[in-house]
Structure formats: C-alpha cells, structure tokens
Nucleic acid binder design. Sequence first.
DNA 1: TTGTATGCGTTATCAG
DNA 2: CTGATAACGCATACAA
Lengths: 340, 340
Amino acid sequence: MARQRRPTIKDVATAAGVAVSTVSNVLNDHPHVTDATRRKVLDAVEKLGYQASRAAKSLPGGRTHLIAYCLPGDEEPNPALDVFLHRIVATAAASSLEMLLFVQQGHDSVEPYRDLLRRGGADGFVLSGIEYDDERVAFLQDRDIPFVCFGRVGDPGVTAVDVDGAAGIAAAVEHVAGVGRTRFAFIGWPDGSATGDDRLRGYLDGVERSRAASVAVKQVRNDYDRGRKLVADLMEDSRPDAIVCVSDVLALGVMDGLRALDLRPGADVAVTGFDDVPASSLTSPGLTTLRQPMDRIGSLLVERLVSQLGRTAPSPSGPVLIEPDLIIRQSTRNPMLADT
Amino acid sequence: MARQRRPTIKDVATAAGVAVSTVSNVLNDHPHVTDATRRKVLDAVEKLGYQASRAAKSLPGGRTHLIAYCLPGDEEPNPALDVFLHRIVATAAASSLEMLLFVQQGHDSVEPYRDLLRRGGADGFVLSGIEYDDERVAFLQDRDIPFVCFGRVGDPGVTAVDVDGAAGIAAAVEHVAGVGRTRFAFIGWPDGSATGDDRLRGYLDGVERSRAASVAVKQVRNDYDRGRKLVADLMEDSRPDAIVCVSDVLALGVMDGLRALDLRPGADVAVTGFDDVPASSLTSPGLTTLRQPMDRIGSLLVERLVSQLGRTAPSPSGPVLIEPDLIIRQSTRNPMLADT
DNA sequence: TTGTATGCGTTATCAG
DNA sequence: CTGATAACGCATACAA
C-alpha cells in the first residue's frame, strides 16, 4: 500500500470552505472566531485526521516545541531512569511538547548542548546529575535558555528540584529508633558530594532527635564489597545495633557482611539504605530504604519548564525539596517481636 | 546576556561570498564543487558555528531526521533501558539522526504511532516488546514506514533483532553440567510467551547435549516469591542439584528459598538466571546468568533502520539472533573445589 | 561550476 | 470576523 500524503492545512481549509489563516486561527484558538466557522474547521480537521506538521510549525516562530534531555554518561546504571523519562515525556505531552534525547559524546559537558542549540534543536532542557558549579547551568543561564534541574544548584534563580535526603535519612533513623535500636552507625560516601553530605547531616539530626547514640561514621566508595568487608571491623570496634547506609548498594553489602559474621540483618542488626533499587526487595530480609519519587520529580520539573517556556511573567523558580518515601521492610523489623 | 540570533545559511553565504545554494551544495556534499569554494564555505561555517536548522531542513524534503522510540508502559522496570537508549541515540547521531521519545497514553498500542506520524513526527521507529502478531508491526508495514524491532517477528521481511535465549540457556546448562551437576530442573514462565518458550527449548537442548537428566519443569509467573516458595516442593519431589531459571527474578527467589531450607546456593545446588539484573551481582553467592548485550542490539537496530531510511535498494532485512553473554558467578561454582 | 528562483507547511500581519 | 500574503530557513530544480 502506498504511503498517502499527509493532509496539510490547505486541505483542511478547502474541505471546510475557509481560508488557511482561519484554520490556523481556530487551531491556535485565537479570539474572534465564530462558533459556526470553528465548527466547520474542526469537523474538517476531524474528518481528515489533520495535525499540524511540527517542522512547518517551528519555522515561523522559531520554537521547536521540543524539550531535550541528555542521557547521563555510562557511570552507574540507573534503574529509575525508566520512570523518570516516562513521566517527563507524558507530562510534556500534556502541554503539546515532545521530547528529544541526546547524549554526551566527548568529554566536554556543555558541547552537546551547544551543538543542539546551534541547529535549533530544542526549546528547553531538563538537566540531571548536577554538580557543584555545573558548567551546563552557567552556559544555559548565560544564553537565557529555559531549563530546569534535578539536583541542587547554588543560584536560587535556577529552578531546581531535589530529594530531601537529610529528611529521608532522619526519618529512617527515627523509625529504627522506634523499633528499639539505640546504637547507630552510618556508612556514607567520602566528603564533598552534595548528596552524600546532605544524607550524613540527616543521620546526625535523626540520631539526635531520637536521643540515640551514634557510635561510628564511616565514609567509603559506593561499592558492594566495600560495604561487605567493612562490617567486621565496624561490629568489632563499635558494636552498633543499627547501620544506616547512604545507599542501597552499600546496605546490601553490609547485610551480606553481617551474614558472614553469623549475624542476622533485621533480627540482630537493623540496616537501612537509600534508593530502593530493585535488589532491595529481592533479598531476604527485604531492605528498608528510601525511594525517590521519580514520577513526582519528573512531572514537577516539566511543569516548571513549561511555565518558563510560556515566557509570560518570569515564572516562579528556585529550589524545591521533595521528601523521599520511607519503604519499611524486614531489615528493620522490631527484634522484640517473634518471627524468624 | 541577550540570546543572539542563530546564523542562517544566508549569513554563511554572505560571509563566504557565495550564494546560498552553494553553501547548501557544500554542506550536503554534492558533486561538482571546487575545492576553493568548498574551503571558503567551510571556513565561514566554522567561523560562524553554523548548523542547519532541523526544522527548516525538514520542510522541503519532508523528512524530519528523527527516529522515535515508544517507552514501554509501566510493566516491569527495565534496568537495561539505560544502555539501550544510550546506544540507540549515539548510533543515530553518527548518521545525523536524532531521537524522539514518546509514550503510550491510552490502551491502543498503535494510536501513539499514528498520532506521531500525523504530525510528521519522525522518519522511522525502533520497536521493542514485540508480541505475537504485533499490531504496530502490521500498522507500520501497511503504510510503508521504516522500522526495526527488538524481538521476534513472524514475517521474515521485517528487520528484527533478538537475543538467542535458547542458545544462552543451553550454554548455561552445559556450563553447569561441566562443574559436575547431573539432575536439572527448570523454572520457566507459563506457555505462550515467545521468549519463555524459546528459553525452555534451550534448556531441553542443553540437558540433552550434556547427557544430563531433567528431573522437573515448573512454569510460574515471573515473581520473586513464586520462586522462593516453589523450592521446597521442588527439592522434596525431585531433588535436583541444579536449578535453571528463565529469569533472574525467579532465580533470586529460588536462592532465597534454598537458604530457607538450609541449602547453600552454589555449594549444594547450582542456580542460574537470565538478564543479569543489578541484583545478581549484589547477592552472595553472585548469580550466574545471561546478559543481553543491549549495546550491540541497540547499534545493530539503528544501523538497520538507517539503511532502511537510506531508501536506496530495499535494504537487507530479516531476523538476526544475538547470543547473550554467559556471566559466571558463584551460584554455579564447582562443589568439588573447596571454599566457603 | 555557481547563482537565481521556487516551494515546503505554517504563523503572523494586515487589509477587507 | 475572515482572507490574502509575506516570511521562516533550507533544498532543489534550472538557468547562467
């Protein structure tokens, strides 16, 4: 079967017996259009299954009706990307925006953005993996390109959404204290990561608020084996009955390390993580952890971006903190209650 | 700083002292262009940082220079999406194609595609999650739209790339037989899934080729707890010393179930999975499994799609099978060799 | 070999 | 309130 020509605005105009500009007016709901003509036009549109060509629409206005997201380079795999992208695309679609994916090819983090902009690639950007003094932020800000960030940005004029790691960890600590644990240890990342520092702060807050004791704070690379191997010394030196970890990967390693010492995670020592990676529910006991609500984050980001693209009033910007969800599993059950 | 106007082809022409069509000719490397003028043009392009506007380029030719991928609805999370998308985008970029992401909003699987095509949304598609008699395949084939599939398609005229699950599982069985296991059991999905049926076939082949015995074949939903609970009966009824699972999720459940029976996965009973989800390396013992090489699959798909878009000769199509990589971990170690 | 003119589908400006 | 028409940036005949 031959590919049939897409109907154009001209076809619609002819079918409706009006001028093309009228069709355009109706479709972009301009004022001053009779209900009668509107009806005629919409009928014709319906009948022909017409939709304006994105390319053609872009040309006069100079707006692509596209937002873009740069896939993070291949650091750690990101199981949440799934939900994040899905939500971004869906939310954008609600505002008649589509989404372009691009990648960083070389070493320069701004080059892909510059490149895309050169060819009129997109109207705005969603950024993730924000670093201290992120070059991309400066670059886009400098040319006045709309963008939003998933992460923390120093400049309060930038729209940024981030997870409140501190609040999350503090909540986890309080929950664990609530099941009777009193001697806490924290396993975090080395100093200097915004995310890691934030979570450590939450741990300290949580311990203080719970009137519990922090018997140790370790800082290591985010690595399963690090977590596993670190446990022996930790237990010997400090004898914590609760180990709060900055990430699930470390927490899973810790649980394994405990087993190697013939200690039962959950029963003998409480363990918590952060991220709710799939593995956290695929282990026994399940790992109590904090889930970043990627769906809420995704829609929030795009909603803000859309309003920036609207370009009416300078839209409300600034940082937003979203509390992660505490997912309680058996790794922090109450040791007083029977059950294996 | 004000957003400065993007340079147009006209600016380049002026800067180079030639006509716009000459610039166009150079950029689309048409024949019959003097080296001297080419040089002049390229210099001007370089100096101005010019790139042709995608929108403007699309209009005359009717091609968007975009390929599109529909994010699977929220079934099971897909940790491999990450690599898959990254590779698709990167490979497309090598052919000056960009990638558009869209999602299925309603129930109808073809509607998003029809919708995108109506507005001249993309030149071609990458499909995944192919079902028997997939509606999208029929739809796109019918209108002669270029597309490629990740999965298996009946029609040999369709370009499809799939993982050779049968070969993968057979290889796993042979590996396990090689470490001395002789009584095999298989835990698969209910009949009727192309992927599941394929893997079961591979299991049976592998057992036969290894001159081992298959003592049981169970078929259940892809669920951690199913795997975990099923083990008790399985061990009692059939006493396998190797359990081959159709997926990592089931395999992880099985390992947990074994532990509950005080059996050590790897030492007492070998276990294998499929997918190499992150959890498989974040458990002890690590799970021997098969990894789908999403990077190779992604580039292969796009390369094929690009050649279809070339529209020269009817490009080579048909199915391609890619063997998964056997990842050997401690869940299938040799029980004869000492070590905990 | 290079330049000129036309058209792609849409929006915006303006005259009716 | 509606309809012509120019313009958007580029490719593609075609003429020079």
